[in-house]
Design a protein around this nucleic acid. Structure first.
Lengths: 343, 343
DNA sequence: CTGTTAGCGCTTTCAA
DNA sequence: TTGAAAGCGCTAACAG
């Protein structure tokens, strides 16, 4: 292991060919004679040559970086998406560059400027509520772009996700159908997707004549399980009649489960709890919690695949192919407790 | 917004100075006359100039990238670390490049080669069990390196973490002190840190004369809450006498909590459950679960700070300063259920 | 199938 | 405090 970094020309010299040939051998092996190819590969391995990505990017004006802007690295929802992105990236030439927008459109704007300056191969952005400036930047960008986790009209380029409104509506309908007469909403963070879930809840309740704004507790604070316990405590203090809760997400739902246990409020006999996203733990919960399953891993993976496909076949001369717009849907997972009741 | 990317010389031309001067103005504002500086800054803003990182990296042989290799993006433990890393980089010039090793030393090796080829400003690696090849690469690297999440002898460079063995030992002692006579261990994934936790459990139990290998259920499968329910089911089927469980992590502990509820095994009357890491949700759980709190966010943030500090002051001529080695410790969080018992 | 010539956008010298 | 020249390591566009 010498201190000298080995470059393309070192390899070329050793192989007795030009740097260009080595470059080709590495990028399009079929354009080089098999014998030479093997010789070059051997030397590359011997010397431990690793291409300098900066030089490559500078010379070619392109990178193998797929930028992914997500609102949170801690939220399980996005770590599943991320896992999908990494899974799809694993065997290809692409690298992922992660950007954490922390639910701030302004942060997203800044990150976008930085990311775009790197000439990424593609870009993944979360949601459909980009700021006007962000939208402008994205529309001016010359790489494939996928908006993920939501579905809506006017995509910037490609789009894959589902309707949060519909998901919430389905959950709320289930709540009412299983007998809830005084349904409540518990939400935190209140980002655009949460807002649309709330709208779904509100509209279904209104149509059923059981909407009450006073039974909706929300806060801009990020959701946590502990926050769920507190919001639920507030709720039952003001509305002991509540017999069903639709939660913005599973963390809050779990908090409500715990708080209900603590207060000996029987689930599902006296209270039905419904979450959103159907995180892994929901399948194990006792008492059971219904949730809306969202294909987060698949969305992440598919987003990368859509970019790769576009790169392979840019399509018509528009500079941007036909904009794919994939509605993944969701799945209401209704659960019943399987506990043996204590004697 | 023109299609043309704006470069340093565009800015220079507009300002009527040389590119070099603009470059200086941007990187060391104090080496340029104040009036000129302001003029340049204005033009930069007008033109929307963003430096080309590839060109910068190529010319300078350095980057502002801090590489972070972590075993999993989904595991809450590491997303907390990641959040700390991002928090510490937010206001500085550094960018984070994430690498997902998926608990594989081989994957880590490959990623390391790629990362090192980018001449990162610094590197964060998880744990102390790098493969020999990885260790060699890291030792040959010319940037600050921090091993995180564990503490041990023979650091490659810097190190920040805690003893998993001691953490597990403390938890096990607590289990025994609060009356467990037949303690069990439930573990999944069984990565090196899990192994050391197991060792801590084993040694404390052995010393207390209550170790039984048959009460230790483990699997190489990644931990999930659902897996916790299953492993616990296996355990009680074989050992109904178990009255305390130390879990490899909080996910398994939560699964055990749920399964115990399902089987109407009273916690903590008949069973004490202890997790590891003290994830946020543990504070809310009902019945309560004891856990070992680990400073994950702080470790991530501090790791970046250590790198930045080293970069600012490389220290003696050794090329590598005195290797800091920080033991963050951990905190046993013993909890008691606060439920009102049902009438 | 292989080589030559430029040059990507920036920074490092060194000089003024 | 500012500028000129050279080149980082690689690839595009042509030649052969």
């Amino acid at each position: 292991m010498s201190k000298e970094r080995v470059t393309l020309s070192h390899v070329a010299q050793r192989a007795g060919v030009s740097a260009m040939t080595v470059s080709r051998a590495l990028r399009s092996p079929d354009k080089v004679s098999p014998a030479l190819l093997r010789r070059i590969e051997k030397i590359v391995a011997e010397l431990g040559y690793v291409p300098n990505p900066a030089a490559r990017a500078l010379a070619s004006g392109r990178t193998n970086v797929i930028g992914a802007l997500i609102p949170s690295v801690t939220n399980n929802v996005f770590s599943d998406v991320l896992r999908g992105i990494y899974a799809a990236t694993e065997d290809g030439p692409f690298e992922v560059q992660l950007g954490n927008t922390r639910y701030s459109p302004l942060t997203e704007e800044k990150l976008l400027a930085v990311f775009l300056s790197q000439k990424p191969a593609g870009l993944i952005v979360t949601g459909i509520d980009q700021s006007p400036a962000s939208r402008r930047m994205l529309e001016g960008a010359s790489c494939p772009i996928v908006q993920i986790m939501e579905i809506g009209s006017g995509p910037i380029d490609m789009m894959i996700g589902f309707s949060h409104y519909d998901g919430a509506a389905a959950a709320t309908r289930h709540l009412i159908e299983t007998g809830s007469r005084f349904p409540a909403f518990v939400g935190a963070r209140m980002d655009p997707r949460t807002q649309r879930r709330f709208a779904g809840f509100r509209d279904v309740c209104s149509a059923a004549g059981c909407f009450s704004m006073s039974r909706c507790v929300t806060t801009p604070t990020p959701s946590t399980v502990t926050l769920g316990t507190r919001l639920f405590a507030d709720l039952v203090a003001r509305h002991p009649e509540v017999d069903g809760v639709f939660c913005n997400n599973d963390d809050l739902a779990l908090g409500i489960l715990f708080e209900a246990q603590r207060r000996c409020i029987a689930i599902p006999e006296k209270l039905t709890v419904c979450g959103f996203n159907d995180l892994e733990m929901m399948a194990a919960a006792e008492p059971s919690i219904t949730s809306v399953r969202t294909p987060r891993f698949a969305i992440g993976r598919r987003a990368v695949e859509m970019i790769v496909a576009r790169l392979a076949d840019p399509g018509p001369d528009t500079g941007r192919g036909a904009a794919e717009r994939v509605d993944t849907g969701f799945e209401l997972v209704a659960r019943q407790s399987t506990a043996r009741r204590p004697r």
